[in-house]
Amino acid sequence: MVKPSDTRTRIQAVARELFLEQGVQNTSLKQISDRLGITKPALYYHFDSRDDLVRSIIQPLMDDLEAFVAGREPGDVRRLLEDYFDLIWRHREVIVAVLHTPAVLVELNLMDRMWEWRKRLTTLLLGPTPTTVAQIHATVALGGMSDCVVEHAILPFEEVKAAAVEAALTVLAI
């Protein structure tokens, strides 16, 4: 017999697959339930709404990002970037899905949280009063690392990580 938590995990896995294939906004609960071979009411047993399902997939990334910046002190920038790369690599499928449909962050009221952790990460990299130029460099460095995770996900992890971290350090002029 399948446990409810197993079904919940299967629903999330199929939803992630469909989100990657056709985007979050183009994926219906019916498509998810059909692919799983369950009824839509069975899906609703595990998730109150489509937004609830989408949030359950994005939430682990959000939680990890917030824990990452909350538990850090300014210091070794290379180590911070390496650890950040590890985190975003683990969540690359969710990042791809969000990049395909960034409006989903607005719909789920997660955009402010995303900007807040990004600001805290920038402060960890640059200190509390960075110049505008330094902030722009940090945006390019962090955004570029995220892009590498998405665009080069089929390459070996260590190869992508080493190049992305070095590029970020170069952009930050460190």
Rank of each mutant, 00 (worst) to 15 (best):
R35Q: 13
F47S: 14
R118E: 12
R8L: 06
L142R: 02
V69G: 06
T123V: 10
D48R: 13
S5M: 05
A67R: 03
V14T: 14
M111K: 08
L172Q: 09
V98I: 15
D6G: 09
E66Y: 04
S33P: 03
A153Y: 00
W117Y: 15
A97W: 01
I38P: 07
P60F: 11
L61E: 07
D83H: 05
A173W: 06
E93D: 13
G23H: 01
A15D: 01
K3P: 07
G127P: 03
S5T: 14
Q12K: 14
A97H: 01
F19A: 11
I32C: 12
E17K: 05
D51V: 06
L124F: 06
A134I: 07
L36E: 02
Q25G: 08
L65D: 01
V104H: 07
D112E: 11
R92Y: 03
R16S: 12
R120I: 06
V160H: 00
P156K: 00
T131P: 00
I154V: 10
T122P: 03
V94W: 01
G143M: 03
R90Y: 12
T132H: 07
P128D: 05
Y84H: 13
E159T: 01
W115Q: 14
Y84F: 15
L108Y: 04
K40V: 15
E159W: 00
M62F: 04
R8S: 15
K119S: 11
G23N: 14
R113M: 10
V96I: 15
E116G: 06
P128Y: 04
S5L: 07
Q22T: 11
N26P: 06
D86Q: 07
D6S: 13
R113H: 14
E93P: 10
I38N: 07
S33M: 05
R78C: 12
E151R: 08
L125C: 15
D48P: 07
T101H: 11
D6P: 01
L121H: 10
E82H: 12
Q22H: 07
V150M: 05
E82A: 11
L18M: 08
K161G: 00
S49P: 05
Q25K: 04
S5I: 12
Q12D: 10
T7P: 03
F47E: 09
A67L: 10
V150Y: 02
D112T: 09
V96C: 13
R8V: 13
